[in-house]
């Protein structure tokens, strides 16, 4: 189906067909990465602003490369330590950026909902590059693209998402996307890291790693932030890793032989994933990274590549 949205804010608001349009477009664009001259003229004369309120070298670089390979002018605006630190409000910063007439603003923010505010404030396209514990649509899209490449389809697959679900935007975007594409999702972790009413998002909840990973097609391990320990959500990293760390032994004992191991990165080796698993044959973690640029190219192209009037009228 054609793409008509002005912004990409959440996976939750997308139709399955829209998710597939994004994934298909990204799949088509992967070829550019294999070229000697990695540049196509599609977004010549367009301006993409990366507005990052949180440090994320990986996501920012990925959007930057995506924009440049499409020939857009890419401007990085790191809001940490600049005007934000001098007390300029988010909305003021947004208005200042709007004055530069960008075509797309890619925003990463520690506050849930910040991209939605920006979308209301600015007439250009907004891409959510991760907001608080809300959503991270492009990460979910690259995860989906990876899954389809490895498994050939979506419908009927089962996935376990393991770890700190409560604070994870990656988990939320993936849950929405996977449900829409006909997959079954189980979230698993200690109860303190599972958000209240998680089953209302349409997934099963498990409090035991061994049960959660049994017979699933995909295991997605989430990064455990050290702060969770200080907030009293888990007693210690040692204990977490003992009960929730994915090791070769556990995989061999409970998981299917063709299971995919995914991780949005960066991996805490020895905490949620043992090094043998992270680097082992089940792991598609590096495939995920390589899909990142293609997915972000697809997003930028669909938002900024078409007739601006029509795309923005929604």
């Amino acid at each position: 189906m054609g793409w008509t949205r002005k912004d990409l804010l959440t996976i939750r608001e997308l139709e399955a067909a829209e998710i597939l349009t994004l994934v298909d477009t990204a799949a088509s664009l992967q070829e550019i990465a294999t070229r000697e001259i990695k540049k196509v003229p599609a977004l010549r004369g367009k301006t993409v602003v990366n507005l990052f309120y949180e440090n994320s070298t990986r996501t920012r670089t990925s959007f930057e490369i995506a924009g440049k390979w499409l020939s857009a002018d890419v401007i990085n605006f790191s809001a940490t330590g600049s005007s934000a630190a001098k007390g300029e409000s988010f909305v003021d910063t947004a208005r200042n950026i709007a004055a530069m007439s960008p075509d797309v603003v890619v925003v990463r923010h520690s506050s849930s909902g910040a991209p939605a505010l920006l979308a209301r404030e600015l007439s250009c396209s907004i891409v959510n590059a991760g907001d608080g514990a809300h959503e991270h649509p492009t990460q979910a899209l690259l995860d989906l693209l990876t899954i389809r490449e490895k498994k050939g389809h979506f419908e009927g697959l089962s996935v376990a998402i393991v770890g700190d679900i409560a604070h994870s935007r990656v988990a939320r975007s993936n849950i929405h996307g996977m449900k829409k594409l006909g997959m079954t999702v189980t979230v698993a972790g200690p109860p303190t890291l599972i958000p209240p009413y998680a089953q209302e998002l349409g997934c099963k909840v498990s409090y035991r790693l061994e049960d959660a990973i049994r017979d699933v097609d995909v295991i997605m391990m989430l990064r455990l932030q050290q702060e969770r320990m200080h907030a009293g959500l888990i007693p210690s990293l040692r204990e977490y890793s003992r009960y929730w760390g994915l090791t070769l032994d556990r995989l061999a004992a409970h998981a299917r032989p063709d299971v995919l191991i995914m991780h949005p990165g960066p991996v805490n080796r020895g905490v949620e994933l043992s090094p043998e698993v992270a680097d082992g044959p089940y792991s598609v973690i590096l495939d995920q990274v390589s899909k990142g640029v293609a997915v972000r190219m697809a997003v930028l192209l669909l938002l900024a590549g078409g007739r601006s009037g029509e795309a923005q009228a929604q």
Partner: peptide
């Protein structure tokens, strides 16, 4: 409020 919506929006809830 801590509930379905806070979980969906990823906002810290107040039970």
């Amino acid at each position: 409020h801590e509930g379905v919506v806070s979980t969906e929006l990823g906002l810290q809830g107040i039970p």
